[in-house]
Design a protein around this nucleic acid. Structure first.
Lengths: 221, 221
DNA sequence: TAGATGTCTAATGTCGACAATCGACGCACG
DNA sequence: CGTGCGTCGATTGTCGACATTAGACATCTA
C-alpha cells in the first residue's frame, strides 16, 4: 500500500488546489493565512509553507508585505504558459525520439484512441486525465531532469486551465487528430518536425483557451 | 537610488548565496536552520522562508523531515541545466529576433568587445559579469514572462557554476568568438540558425564545465 | 558474530503571540 | 471641491518554545 502523505503542508497544498479547481477561490482572491489556518484547524506555519510551494508552480501570486493571491491570468499569460510548456516538451520528445520503442508508440496510439472515445462520449474529465497521461508518457522518456522539473511545474497550472475550459475547446475528432499528429511525428523520426508539431500543439491549445477565457471575461463584464 | 532590501528573508538569501559562492558551504553540506539562525542573530522563521525560495531556484536541495542540503551536482546535471537554459533562451532570442534594432546589435557587439578585452586582461570576474549582462540583454527582448521566469531561475545556479570554474573554460579569443557567433546569427535573421547557435553555446559551455568539475572530483579523490 | 530491536539525540515540523508594514479611510488645508 | 497627510485596522513578518520524526548508537537475541 502507498503510504499516505503526512505533513500538514502537503494537505494544505491539496486543499488549496481543490479550492481553486472548484472556484471556491477565484482569480484575484486573497488567501488570508489566518483565516485558512482557522478553517483547517491548524496554525499559520504550515499554511505559509504550502503557499511558498504553490508559488513556485505559479498557482499563487505573492506580493511582499501584502499577501498571497490567486493570479488573474491575462490571455497573453495563458498563451505564454502553454508556449513555454511546448518549448520544453517539444525539445524533450525530440531529444528522446529514438528511445520510443514500437510498444511505446502502440501505447501512445492507445491513449489517443481512448481520448477520442471519451471525447465522443462526453466524458470530459476522462479526456483531461488521459491527456495528462499521454503527455506524462511523452515526457517520461527524457533523461534531462532539469527540463522535466520545469515542465512539471507548469502542469498543475495548465491542468487547472484546461480543466475549467475543456468543454468549448475541441470537437472530439479534432482532439483525437491533434494528438495523433504528435504520435505520427515521432514515427517519422524527423527531429525538426517532432519539435515543431509538439510546440504547435501547445500553442494552439493555449490560444484556444485564452480565447475562451477572454470571451467569458467579456460576458461577465 | 535603488531601495535597499528589507525583510530578513532576503538578507538570508544573499547570505547563503555568498556562503556557497565562497565555498564556506560546500556541496553535500547540510544547512542547519538553528545554527544559521544563531549565527545571524535571528529566529528560524526567516531562515526557512529563504531556504524555500532557494529551493525553487535549485540552490538548495530539500529532503522532508531531514533537512536542507547544498546539492551535489553530477556532470550530467550540469549539462542538463545548461541545456535547458539554452532551450529557453534560444527560443526567446529566436522569437524576438526581429525586435533587435541596429543599436541593440551594436550594444551586443560592445559587450562582446569588452568581454574579449577583460578576458585577455585576465579580469575573470569582469568577464563573468559582462557575460551576465550580455545574456540578460538578449533575454530582455522577449515578452514571454513565463519563459523569462524559468530562465531567470536558472541563472543564479549557472552563475555559481560558471564563477567557480571560469579560469579553465575558454581562451580569451574563444570566449569572444563564441559570443560573437550569437550576435552574428541574430544579424542573419535566420530563425532556425539563431535558435541552434544559442542552444549550442549553452550546451558547449555546460559540457566544458561538467568536464572541469569531473576532473576536479577526480584529483580530489 | 550478525541481525534485529530499543533508545536517544539532533534536526525539522508546528504552534500561538507579538511586531512591523501596507492600504484605506477621514480629516485638515489650499 | 480636490489634494495631501495622519491615523487606524487588518494582514504579513518574526519570534521562541514545544512536538514529532529520521538516523545513529547501544542492546538484546540466536
Amino acid at each position: 500500500m502507498m503510504i499516505v502523505k503526512k505533513t500538514y503542508k502537503d494537505q494544505v497544498i491539496d486543499h488549496i488546489y481543490q479550492l481553486i479547481l472548484t472556484d471556491e477561490l477565484q482569480p484575484g482572491d486573497q488567501i488570508k493565512e489566518s483565516l485558512l489556518a482557522a478553517q483547517m484547524g491548524i496554525s499559520r506555519a504550515p499554511i505559509r509553507e504550502a503557499l511558498k510551494e504553490l508559488m513556485t508552480i505559479g498557482l499563487i501570486e505573492y506580493r511582499p508585505q501584502v499577501g498571497n493571491f490567486v493570479p488573474v491570468l491575462t490571455p497573453k499569460q495563458i498563451v505564454d504558459s502553454y508556449t513555454t510548456r511546448g518549448i520544453l516538451e517539444g525539445y524533450a520528445v525530440m531529444a528522446a525520439s529514438e528511445l520510443f520503442s514500437t510498444e511505446d508508440l502502440i501505447q501512445l496510439d492507445r491513449y489517443v484512441d481512448e481520448m477520442g472515445l471519451a471525447a465522443r462520449a462526453g466524458q470530459h474529465k476522462k479526456v483531461v486525465d488521459i491527456g495528462g497521461d499521454f503527455h506524462d508518457f511523452l515526457a517520461a522518456h527524457t533523461d534531462n531532469l532539469q527540463l522535466l522539473e520545469f515542465s512539471g511545474r507548469l502542469s498543475l497550472k495548465l491542468h487547472i486551465l484546461f480543466y475549467k475550459h475543456w468543454g468549448l475547446l475541441y470537437k472530439a475528432d479534432e482532439i483525437e487528430q491533434r494528438h495523433r499528429a504528435i504520435v505520427d511525428s515521432i514515427r517519422s523520426q524527423d527531429r525538426g518536425r517532432i519539435e515543431q508539431v509538439v510546440r504547435a500543439h501547445y500553442v494552439e491549445t493555449g490560444t484556444k483557451i485564452a480565447a475562451v477565457q477572454a470571451a467569458r471575461a467579456e460576458t461577465a463584464a
